[in-house]
């Protein structure tokens, strides 16, 4: 497992300081997925038009299904899973972002099993997590800009529980996937890049 630390950058936005970092996982993900003809990517949200506009030139289609809003509405995992009603082996890549930080262990296991069924053989899965325990961290969407710079944009309409997990716990729950890379940034974000199988 490769761990790499980057310098923290803080940019001033209209309302608050936003954490930014240059995403090496997204760089790898885009380069690998873009090689496939008619690549399809599933993004679990929170929906960001900046991210969609960034991804769309590299793939044939971006599928968006906002799990964060569904969790915020109090939907149970069976119903969330029902909303992810895509055909098996539909996707070349899935972007989970920090969705697992917002689900308990049981829900996480169900979601990951479903993700595994949606991915092609050798399909890619990216996720993020806070590096250290933070008390009630705000929900943010990961907006991708030029040069794979990621800006965390606060989603004040979402109030979700938070489950912090150490690396070993994440690797355990992701045991059905193969770890390709993981990075920890000084901004306090960890990124993991997995492959199905």
């Amino acid at each position: 497992m490769v761990t790499l630390i980057e310098e923290r950058k803080v940019v001033q936005t209209d309302q608050e300081d936003a954490v930014t970092y240059s995403s090496r996982v997204m760089r790898s993900f885009v380069h690998r997925v873009a090689k496939k003809k008619d690549a399809k990517v599933l993004d679990m949200g929170p929906v960001s038009d900046q991210r969609i506009n960034f991804l769309i030139p590299h793939v044939k289609s971006v599928f968006v299904c906002d799990l964060f809003l569904q969790i915020n509405k109090g939907m149970a995992m069976p119903k969330i899973k029902k909303n992810l009603d895509y055909e098996p082996y539909s996707f070349d890549g899935i972007l989970l972002w920090d969705c697992l930080d917002r689900l308990d262990l049981q829900e996480t296991e169900v979601l990951l099993e479903h993700c595994s069924s949606l991915l092609n053989d050798g399909g890619h899965l990216c996720m993020a997590a806070y590096d250290e325990f933070v008390s009630n961290p705000p929900v943010s969407s990961f907006c991708i800009k030029k040069n794979f710079d990621v800006v965390l944009k606060r989603q004040s309409h979402l109030v979700l529980p938070y489950f912090h997990r150490h690396n070993r716990d994440i690797l355990h729950i992701m045991r059905n996937f193969t770890l390709i890379n993981s990075y920890v940034y000084r901004s306090g974000i960890r990124e993991f890049y997995f492959r199905r199988g």
Binding site: G45, V47, I52, V62, D66, N83, K153
Partner: peptide
């Protein structure tokens, strides 16, 4: 495409 925060979107975007 422009999507405001808070919108529920389940879509295929091309």
């Amino acid at each position: 495409i422009a999507i405001e925060d808070g919108a529920y979107v389940k879509a295929t975007i091309e």
